[in-house]
């Protein structure tokens, strides 16, 4: 009897496992870029925007946010990534009005709100926002999203700052949903952003 029960128990366990695996396969969301839902914390910051105002994520509530860490003196990844995000906005058409690009500077010493304003408006005058703050504010934000940033590093003082090329995508509630890189195509990124906008309602 005992053997029968344990046999049945094992069978039930196997069925449950198979059902779970099948469910996972069916409900798997085929995003083009990396999905990070639940792995990265919700967006939380208090920084100065390029118009000089103090902003928090609630300022952009209802908008899907594309956050990128860079600095205006960067001559390789940052302009390329920002130009790419501007192209994604073009691909989105009218949907782009519900999206904002947040360019967070890693060089707050040089990137004042005015400098940032001049920089971001080159890429998208209406929907790109430059953000700056104290070194510790920016360090806290980069740490939360595992973005490499050493404000005290000597390499930083020499001019160049080593940083990643990740675009952190947050839904309209400020939840981290996707992580895009330069390896992802503009079209794929635009498709994923549009899909995220559709599921927001």
């Amino acid at each position: 009897m005992e053997c029968f029960v344990s046999g049945r128990f094992i069978l039930a366990l196997m069925i449950a496992f198979a059902a779970f695996a099948l469910n996972a396969c069916i409900s798997q969301k085929p995003w083009h870029v990396e999905e990070v839902t639940g792995h990265l914390p919700d967006l939380k910051f208090s920084l100065t925007a390029d118009n000089g105002r103090l902003v928090t994520p609630t300022t952009y509530e209802g908008h899907l946010l594309l956050m990128y860490f860079g600095f205006t003196n960067c001559d390789s990844e940052c302009p390329v990534s920002m130009a790419r995000l501007a192209r994604v906005m073009q691909l989105l058409g009218n949907d782009a009005n519900r999206v904002r690009i947040l360019f967070v500077t890693l060089d707050p010493g040089r990137d004042t709100p005015q400098v940032l304003h001049r920089y971001v408006t080159q890429f998208d005058p209406d929907r790109a926002i430059g953000l700056t703050g104290t070194t510790s504010d920016i360090e806290r934000l980069t740490k939360q999203y595992r973005a490499a940033y050493r404000p005290r590093s000597k390499i930083g003082e020499a001019g160049g700052i080593d940083h990643g090329d990740a675009v952190y995508i947050f839904d309209s509630q400020g939840r981290a949903r996707l992580l895009a890189t330069s390896a992802d195509s503009d079209e794929h990124l635009a498709q994923d952003v549009r899909r995220l906008l559709e599921t927001a309602h």
Binding site: A148, D162, H163, G164, A166, T181
Partner: peptide, 9 residues
């Protein structure tokens, strides 16, 4: 490591 940035340039 490339996505989030490397510590040693």
């Amino acid at each position: 490591y490339t996505i989030c940035g490397r510590a040693i340039g």
